[in-house]
Design a protein around this nucleic acid. Structure first.
Length: 209
DNA sequence: GGAGCGATGTCCT
DNA sequence: GGACATCGCTCCG
């Protein structure tokens, strides 16, 4: 049985920076071939639509980014740098293109399977499994072909967002990572002090939860 | 522990 | 043809 309860669509039908703050601490759950993979979201970035030059939706709707313009709570998985997948969660009502890039998870269940998927020994430290957008997709076996466009808020889905009631003690906001445009706004959110976040953990504007 | 860099596919101009 | 929401390896201090 997957932990917690399935999240509500209305939670994601809001501005991405607001959803990003609130989605920290929630669970990403994958049920595949008898195994259960669970990770807690510890780091996300918010992306807007046309007014955000760094967003995939900045230039309008294309075949690639169509999911971003669809209903909230769906997975936008894309392939980048010829090697890695990245997972986004669509936000805002249908027709509006906000999203969250899931940058890091704290692995909670299925660690041996994640290690295997990452090509690591089953004794590898948990932080190496899912700390980074490419890493977590590899650990969970997510690709554009298999998961782009699926509903993360459906009981029958292979991949789901769930809430187990965990309360985030303290969160931090920093500039977004790995982009060259619109780098000034603090739209990267992370759980303060969590060892599984990727990249810099400080340099922060502290925020209250 | 930090900077530099190569690998590699897909999309859009 | 160039850019790209990355990662892991090298080299240097």
């Amino acid at each position: 049985m997957p932990p917690g309860s399935l999240m509500q669509r209305s939670f994601f039908e809001r501005a991405p920076d607001l959803v990003a703050r609130d989605v920290l601490g929630k669970l990403l759950v994958r049920r595949a071939s008898g195994t259960l993979l669970v990770g807690r979201i510890v780091e996300v970035e918010a992306y807007f639509g046309q007014d955000d030059p760094a967003a995939h939706a900045a230039a309008g709707r294309t075949a690639r980014n169509a999911v971003l313009f669809g209903p909230a709570g769906h997975a936008y998985v894309y392939f980048v740098y010829g090697m890695y997948s990245c997972l986004n969660i669509s936000c805002e009502p249908e027709g509006h293109a906000g999203s969250l890039l899931v940058r890091a998870l704290e692995p909670l269940a299925g660690l041996p399977q994640m290690a295997h998927a990452r090509g690591l020994a089953s004794t590898a430290v948990p932080r190496l499994l899912t700390s980074g957008p490419g890493r977590l997709c590899q650990a969970f076996g997510l690709t554009r072909a298999s998961h782009n466009g699926i509903d993360l808020l459906d009981d029958d889905s292979d991949l789901q967002l769930r809430d187990d009631g965990y309360v985030v003690p303290s969160l931090v906001a920093t500039p977004r990572i790995g982009i060259s445009k619109a780098t000034e706004r603090p739209l990267r959110y992370l759980i303060d002090g969590n060892p599984c976040v990727s990249g810099p953990k400080r340099l922060a504007l502290k925020s209250n939860s």
